[in-house]
Structure formats: structure tokens, C-alpha cells
Design a protein around this nucleic acid. Structure first.
Lengths: 180, 180
DNA sequence: CGGTTGTCTTGAATCATTCAAAACATCTGT
DNA sequence: ACAGATGTTTTGAATGATTCAAGACAACCG
């Protein structure tokens, strides 16, 4: 079973993370790659790991995360890897209006997104209406419909609070101005 | 009523279109602009007209349409006008993944879109589920939800046909190859 | 009709993303 | 374990949509 794990045991988890890219033998992530017919390489494993840590990361966020464990990886490699993953169905690429493309590992489960208009933060939401409703527009106008994408736009808790504080400050300033 | 329409009658419709930009007096479109507190200018009226003709145009399409009646208008002016219209709520900007931003006059009526994955063509569809359902994700995760955007991805009739023909050709070629 | 304010033109910069060629590494069969 | 074939990464540069900035200009108010 254990055939070419050259690092076996006795590593800290940090060592494990740092060296994982070199031990292409049988990371669980390596299997994920082989399962879809992709070669196992350092950058690919690192990108997979980065996506696990950052569930809706854009290419640059993935790039910076990957650099932590594999400093020689180029941004273009990250784009290439993400593109290959998307083609292989390993990741889903979403492109919310106003921000750069985001990538997520959660695929094939018909879920939707909540996007913050202020900061661009993205969160998952399960579909309330079954797939059925999601796949049925009122009129297809002759289109062969393959998928429905639902995006809920709003304000995330952090931005809502920042907004409330800004308003409170403005009100205070107005009160001061009025009292002089 | 007719007070400063300096062109009154006797124009061809082409003349009317070409001169409309100069007659800022009271084009119905001019009212549209004044109603939202925007100054009436040639480029703005022309953009409004272009959007009426091209319901889901991108900036460049609008630019080319505008040039037909107002050749001195710059692309940057078109971007500026479209941005001002979007801010004023006069147009809605949609940004389907993989294509440049599209602009549409139909606003405030909770309708959705059908987008062709092949050619990027966009068509309107009314919401099957009332606004109610559209505004209710299964979990808001603390977000203040303002709007739901639904995009149906598929293949438009033209691209579906092109695809079918390409397949037929491939099958024919395979048959020929087999018979030799 | 003149002044104020906002808009347009011109020119350039920015950002995310993609392209291309050569160096390199993974996997396959031995 | 090794060498070849194939696919991946690096490096360097290009692309396209969009935005920024400054000055020239035009619309609207009174």
C-alpha cells in the first residue's frame, strides 16, 4: 500500500503541508486529480488545497495561497490549473458582476450564491425551490436550457454594520453642527 | 404645445433620426432624461435610441449605433452615459459570465435572462416564481438580501442548429472515410 | 443672454485574463 | 528503476473591456 510515500511519519502538520507538493504519491488530493484523468503536479495539489481553505477565492487569492507552499508557482500556472479544473468539472467558476472570477470546489449540487454588493463576499445557499423550478423558465424562447444560476445580491453582515456605524457618525456630526 | 420643434414636418425618417440629436427640445426621449434629472444631450438621446433598437447591447454595440447618427461621439462618452443611466435607474447593467457588460432599458420589473453559452445572445424571460420566491433564499447567512438575479444558461436556436449541422457534417465525413 | 454646473473629448492607464514558445516534469511501458 | 511521449509550467508579452484625468465645451437656470 505505502509504496512511494518518502515522508511517512514524524512530520509536523506544517511540514506535511510544505512537503505535500513534493510527495505526489498518494495525497488524498492526488486521487482527486487522477480520478478525473489529470496529472498530479505540485501546483495542482496546492491549488486544490488553497480552494479548500478559501471556498470562493479568485485567481489572485489562490495564487497567494499557493505561493505559501510552492513559491515558484506562477500566476499563469494558477490560471492554467483553474482552467483545467473547470474543464474537468473539478471546480466551478463563478463570475459575479463587478468582481473577478471566483472558483469553488463544491460542484454538481445545484446551489446558489449570496453576493455582497459592497465587498464582493460570496456565500453559498442551497436552492429553496427544487431543481425542477430552477430549470424551468416561463418561456424558453427556443433555447435549449441547460442550467439556472441564481445570485442573491445584498449586503453582508460586516458591511451592514460598517454602514450603520457610518450613519451613526454622520448623525452625530450633524447634531454637533446643529448645536453650534 | 409645439414650441421649439424647429424641424416640424417634411423630413424623411432618416433625416429625423439624424437631426433628432440636435433638436433637444422635446423628443419623447428627452423627457425620459429630464424625468430622472439628467441633462439632455445628443449622446444621451442617441444612446437611449440605440438601446431601444438593441435591447441587450454591450458598450461597443451602443457606440457603433450611436456613431450612425452622431459620428463625433466617443466610446468613453458612451461608457459615461451608460454609467449615468445605470446610476439613475434608467437602464439595467447585466454582466453575464464570459461576455462584456450588456445594458437594457427594461428596468424595475423583476425579469430574468436566458443566455446562450455559444454566442452570448441574451433574451428576456419573465419570472415564473413570483418575486416572493425570487427574494427568498433558503438561508440568508445574515445578509440583507435586496435582489435575486436568475440566469438561465443554454443554447440559442441558431447555435443549436449550427451545432446539429456540424454534427451531420462530421457524420457524413466519417461515413466517407469508412467507405474508402 | 451670461454664469454655473455638469458633460464630452482626448489621451492614457489599469486590471484580469489569455496567448505563445521553450523548458520541464509526470506518467506509461519496459 | 529508465527513457520516451505527452502534457504542464515558466517566462514574457499581448489583449480587451473598462476607468481615470484634464481641459474644452454645452445645457440649464435665472
Amino acid at each position: 500500500m505505502i509504496q512511494d510515500n518518502r515522508y511517512g511519519e514524524g512530520m509536523t502538520s506544517t511540514d506535511a503541508a510544505a512537503n505535500a507538493a513534493a510527495s505526489h504519491g498518494h495525497d488524498p488530493l492526488a486521487h482527486t486529480l487522477r480520478d478525473v484523468g489529470l496529472k498530479v503536479t505540485g501546483p495542482r495539489v496546492a491549488v486544490l488545497r488553497a480552494l479548500a481553505e478559501h471556498p470562493h477565492a479568485d485567481a489572485d487569492t489562490v495564487f497567494r495561497a499557493v505561493q505559501g507552499e510552492l513559491p515558484t508557482t506562477s500566476l499563469q500556472a494558477v490560471y492554467g490549473v483553474l482552467g483545467a479544473f473547470a474543464d474537468a468539472g473539478l471546480v466551478r467558476r463563478i463570475e459575479p458582476a463587478g468582481s473577478s472570477a471566483r472558483y469553488e470546489r463544491r460542484v454538481g449540487d445545484n446551489h446558489h450564491h449570496l453576493v455582497c454588493r459592497e465587498c464582493g463576499r460570496v456565500e453559498d445557499v442551497d436552492c429553496v425551490l427544487g431543481e425542477q423550478a430552477c430549470l424551468t423558465p416561463s418561456s424558453t424562447r427556443g433555447f435549449r436550457v441547460a442550467e439556472a444560476e441564481v445570485t442573491f445580491w445584498g449586503t453582508c453582515p460586516a458591511c451592514a454594520q460598517a454602514e450603520a456605524e457610518a450613519e451613526a457618525d454622520a448623525a452625530a456630526a450633524a447634531a454637533i453642527a446643529e448645536s453650534t
